[in-house]
Simulated assay, not measured.
Amino acid sequence: MTITDGTSLTDLLSARGLFLTQDEGDATGAIYLCVRDGLPGGYPIGYALPSRAGTWFAYARSRPGRIFACDQVDSGLWSPESALRSALAHARYGDVLYALEQSTGTDTTYTVKVPRSWATHLTALPGVTVRPAGPSLTSRTLRLTAPAVALLRGQPERDGCHADLAGRLWLAGVGYELRREVRGSRTEGLLD
């Protein structure tokens, strides 16, 4: 499947750590968008549902904390691909990824250098702190815990702020490299 901007749906889902599934016994024909949570079938964060008119509806988990509850976020879409893309654009599942990462008990941290204008927004999230200020007036270096990075992986793209599995933090369409901190404040490689 290819989304209208030329990005393969498979690539988009892979970058976010998601997959599609369809229940063979489901008479509705729904295609589910799921996050890998360690359980068979994954955790559903949205779905595309065909209508009798031949168009598609998009549903997404847009209110975190509501277990398995999805709201309709779009309708009248001409393809399952566009419905899934719309569901992905609205789905909020960072709380699920945050809880999964916290349960591992890891003490891994990451750093990222971002424009100063984003620093206040990001430090409002749990597990994100500003490192001591340097000489730059235009950027700040942030330290993020592994659960904080997981939380950012589950942010909707339309918010303009999310992380991918390739070790980038995306802010307003610009990618910034997340670097893993090694004990002793030295950084090493990209995010796993």
Score class of each variant (00 low, 15 high):
23 D>C: 04
95 D>I: 00
27 A>P: 05
14 S>H: 14
85 R>A: 15
30 A>V: 01
45 I>E: 00
4 T>R: 08
44 P>H: 11
57 F>A: 02
155 Q>R: 13
169 L>M: 05
135 P>M: 06
100 L>D: 02
41 G>F: 08
16 R>P: 11
32 Y>I: 00
76 G>H: 12
31 I>Y: 04
144 L>F: 06
148 A>V: 00
94 G>I: 03
159 D>Y: 05
80 P>T: 06
36 R>D: 15
13 L>A: 14
146 A>Q: 13
30 A>N: 14
51 S>Q: 10
84 L>M: 02
189 G>K: 09
147 P>D: 13
23 D>A: 10
184 G>M: 08
12 L>S: 07
86 S>P: 00
27 A>K: 11
28 T>K: 13
114 V>D: 14
104 T>F: 08
34 C>G: 12
175 G>W: 10
170 W>T: 10
93 Y>R: 12
58 A>P: 06
75 S>Q: 02
171 L>R: 04
39 L>S: 14
110 Y>D: 03
168 R>C: 13
158 R>C: 12
155 Q>A: 12
58 A>S: 14
71 D>K: 05
173 G>P: 09
135 P>T: 13
102 Q>P: 09
39 L>K: 10
5 D>V: 03
34 C>K: 06
170 W>R: 06
84 L>S: 04
103 S>Y: 00
68 F>K: 08
143 R>A: 15
188 E>V: 09
165 L>G: 07
179 R>W: 01
181 E>T: 14
155 Q>S: 13
191 L>W: 08
22 Q>N: 08
61 R>P: 04
95 D>A: 09
89 A>C: 04
189 G>T: 12
183 R>N: 11
27 A>R: 11
97 L>M: 02
35 V>G: 01
153 R>W: 02
94 G>Q: 06
191 L>V: 06
60 A>I: 02
111 T>I: 12
150 A>K: 07
33 L>S: 07
43 Y>M: 01
71 D>S: 13
124 A>N: 14
1 M>F: 12
183 R>C: 03
64 P>M: 09
167 G>T: 10
9 L>T: 03
106 T>E: 09
65 G>S: 11
49 L>R: 13
156 P>I: 07
128 V>T: 12
56 W>V: 05
